[in-house]
Design a protein around this nucleic acid. Structure first.
Length: 348
DNA sequence: AAAACGGGGGT
DNA sequence: ACCCCAGTTTT
């Protein structure tokens, strides 16, 4: 019995039934792999089905507008993935006749496709014997071989890619890679791995040494930065002032209620008034603070106050931004969870 | 080599 | 609260 045999035997008995495992269509595998980058399986399922219903083939997606594509991505995060996927699909239609190339190196050239995703697509859709090193593989192999090097380091990833490649079977390399995903999801989980029911426990050096709970070794976490924002719900004639974020950076291209970063502890209402005047050339009457909302993600912490505003004089010229009803705004790709909250507030 | 990039679910 | 996820791109 080899590692691959033991793993595949377990996989064929215990494989998860996932929407993107219905067939081996390379485009569908591609879509699923992009959605799954840094995103949980449970979160992806609904988005994937909706996406395939609307964009069933590369040709259909290539014809769609970026705004609509972003809308279908709304809430999934990392929006550059959607842009890259759209650009990549257009490239496939233009350069490869709408068929995803079979060669891993060519797949790797597509925007948004890194080493992992190229390996996953090539192995799953085209049965190529290429490794796909993701967080699951790093965790599983660091335990299997008791590797104590930092898995965020490039050298560690290369080492594990080599080990993985050595252990891949000649047949069903795609199943092998997917089996590692399922093992990492159900058995070799980050905390308190279920070694008692693991099909590879007899091969696992980490388990033998009883150090599986200390692996893998990750980099020390960094302190989040606090960013204080004030957001305005500026109303005129039943429509709210919204603007589009810059094409690069945080939440690129997403629509939002106007916000202003508060530095040095200024009063939020005065600061918001000044920015609205500066950006949109008109005076507003900032009302009472509505509530306070805090959102945290990996490296930043947003502390946001919302204000309701009345648009005053009608003389100024709006330099940027648009007026939208709440319904219209809801149908645009909008930024972040704080605007979900703002929408709920505005609707109440 | 390190930072930037979202959001959600598990514990 | 904290962890961390089917990672890639930019700096």
């Amino acid at each position: 019995m080899t590692l691959a045999t033991q793993l595949l035997d377990w996989y064929y008995e215990n494989a998860r039934d996932l929407p993107w495992r219905q067939d081996k269509d390379a485009y569908k595998i591609w879509v699923s792999e992009i959605m799954l980058q840094q995103t949980r399986v449970e979160a992806v399922k609904g988005y994937y089905q909706r996406w395939i219903d609307r964009f069933p083939t590369p040709a259909v997606l290539a014809e769609a507008s970026e705004q609509e594509v972003l809308q279908y991505w709304q809430g999934l995060g990392y929006y550059s993935r959607a842009r890259n996927l759209l650009a990549g699909v257009r490239e496939v239609c233009a350069a490869y006749g709408g068929e995803v190339p079979e060669d891993e190196q060519l797949i790797r050239q597509l925007p948004g496709v890194g080493d992992y995703t190229a390996g996953a697509i090539a192995s799953i859709a085209y049965n190529r014997r290429v490794p796909a090193v993701d967080g699951n593989v790093l965790r599983i192999f660091s335990r299997l071989f008791c590797l104590e090097s930092d898995i965020s380091k490039q050298a560690t990833k290369r080492e594990i890619a080599g080990l993985l490649h050595r252990h891949m079977p000649d047949s069903s390399p795609g199943d092998f890679n997917q089996a590692l995903m399922d093992l990492g999801s159900m058995i070799c989980i980050p905390r308190r791995p279920r070694c008692q029911v693991c099909p590879l426990s007899n091969l696992c050096e980490g388990y033998a040494r009883e150090v599986q709970d200390t692996l893998p070794v990750r980099p020390a976490k960094k302190e989040p930065v606090l960013v204080q924002l004030a957001a305005g719900l500026v109303l005129q004639d039943g429509k709210y002032l919204v603007r589009q974020r810059p094409a690069k950076g945080l939440l690129a291209g997403m629509w939002e209620f106007p916000t202003v970063e508060l530095t040095g502890g200024q009063a939020a209402d005065r600061c918001l008034t000044a920015v609205l005047w500066h950006e949109f050339g008109q005076e507003v009457d900032v009302g009472e603070e509505q509530f306070h909302y805090i959102h945290i993600f990996s490296h930043r912490k947003w502390d946001i106050s919302f204000f309701s505003c009345q648009w005053l004089s009608g003389n100024g010229v709006m330099k940027e931004g648009q007026w939208r009803s709440l319904t219209e705004f809801s149908n645009m790709p909008w930024a972040g969870p704080h605007h979900k909250v703002a929408l709920a507030l505005a609707e109440s």
